[in-house]
Amino acid sequence: MSQHRLDYLDQLESESIHIFREVAGQFERPALMFSGGKDSIVLVHLALKAFRPGKFPFPLLHIDTGHNFQEALDFRDTLANTIGEKLIVRNVADTIKEKNLTEQKGKFASRNALQTYTLLDTIEEFKFDACIGGARRDEEKARAKERIFSVRDEFGQWDPKLQRPELWNTYNGRIHKGENVRVFPISNWTELDIWNYIKRNEIELPSIYFAHDREVLEWQGQLVATSAFIQVDDTDKVAVKKVRYRTVGDMTCTAAVESTAANIDDIIKEIIATKTSERGETRIDDRVSEAAMEDRKKNGYF
């Protein structure tokens, strides 16, 4: 039966497609969270495999903090256009204005916490009952404990002690009015799996994932791009370096890594050799405390 063996990427792909179709079968109004980052780009490709030649049974949704990399935003718009699917964008800046929210202050003032407000408002606006996201369990300790179908209350809150047992490949997406489910089709993929999948399927990515020259400042050993969103002080060491991004989040809380990797093969080599985890190397927001992600999730974050 050797001709009937799937390798690990085919198995992961099939599992993710199955999850996508469960969402389509179980929910009335799902949405696919799409930021233009590599994980959400892989989600879009999996959705194409799950539903073509039909249309997606959901729109793409981006909660734009206003602090994103322009390259990722351009990529987001181009991809949505190319595949002819609807893209909904809601801006954190609008929520801040409407709700009179207070922005963080300081050097790397982030809208990371505020985007949860916009997300919950958008869920209410469109009555979304399921939001599909690209979180992976290998990213972070709190994520390692979350279900593939993760039920959130009307405040979007995750309660790790009240999770539904998830058995076999049977997903229980039944919810009460006002609740919603966060669905994570690539839960079982690792960072390296994502890159190997991108390579095998020749998936295009925004240019910032590949080595390029960029003006950065060094902060506690991390390289943060200079931009209008962060405060550069006279004492900061600013220099142009050859960097790439390993993750793409807000410019205020995503760090670049020094690299000369200009193509997927070189990136994969670097990731195999790296001694630092993806979020540890590139996310300033997780460093706040040991339980930063756990706390954000409990408050409705993805």
């Binding site: 369990r137 390692a144 756990e294």
Partner: peptide, 20 residues
């Protein structure tokens, strides 16, 4: 994984770990 677990020295739930 979770703070509650570390504080209490127990595991609340099934956690998934990956290596290759």
């Amino acid at each position: 994984g979770l703070r509650a677990e570390r504080e209490q020295g127990i595991t609340i739930d099934v956690a998934y770990k990956y290596f290759s």
